[in-house]
Amino acid sequence: MGLLLLRRALSGAAVIFGVLTLMFFLLRLAPGDPARLLVGPAATEEQVAAQRHALGLDRPLPAQYATWLGRFVRGDWGTSIATGRPVARTLAEAWPATVRLVGISLVLSYLLGIAIGVLQAMRGGALDTVLSVVTVTLFALPGYWLGLMLVMVFTYQTRMLPAFGAAGFDADFLTGWERLADRLRHLALPLVTLTLIGLGGTARYVRGAMLDVAGAPFVAIARAKGLSPARVAVRHVLRNALIPVLTLLGLSLPALFSGAVFIEAIFAWPGVGRVLVEAVVARDYPTVMAATAVSAALVVAGNLLAEALVGWADPRVRADAHGTVGAR
């Protein structure tokens, strides 16, 4: 198991390295000469050439790449073109907010999604049909639109919940319970939005996995032994259905992260997604690059966590340290 996780960690590092390489070459492929941009339209050709030399853009591409990668890996991400602040500091402040939002909504949407999926698979009939319609609708909802509709109802019409930021303007003057309540009120709408859109996909998947397992011979034996339907569903069917569901957890992380980008932009949630969207709109390349790398790193870290969970749920994976989890 430890060996397997080490292998996965190495392949995760390879993914991050791949992302950085891809970013570097995309940046070089993109139209627009940064040297010309910096010196302005009135500059002479000599000035442009001097600027190119100063930026190192006249060196061979592999050398440029090595220098850039070396700086990036050391955390030297430069300063933001838009705000003039060090990019590393902006992102260091942003990533905990994203992890908080994505993490809590991941746990909530999985708990609720698994509960709904199990209920559908166990009960069937009209309830299953109704819940299928609900989950496919949630699955099809764009997060940013659902967010807007929730803002319309809960912020503008009933004035119950705030729609912007992670804390109120007076947050610094609040203490104890009031401070916590303020935080929770700000968390409510983004969290509910992200959880609802994640829940549909999970419930759909759990229902399918449960029904797949329900036909297996060992389930029939468990029933024949006279176990109660609830016990069969939870101890025999769910236990086995959870393995593909946990594998899906790792695979669905990039999608959840993508959803969070929109949610953060809508609710002005101070996370990596908002930093990214604002930097993209302002064409602030250093920040875009770093935010992309941080997003990829967070996804890889989440994948490792999911991998460890699969190992915990499935003894076969623990025993088979040489096997690949992806092989099905």
Binding site: V15, V19, S258, V261
Partner: peptide, 8 residues
């Protein structure tokens, strides 16, 4: 598959 699509 491991890349966050929207970020890209």
């Amino acid at each position: 598959l491991a890349l966050p699509r929207v970020v890209l």
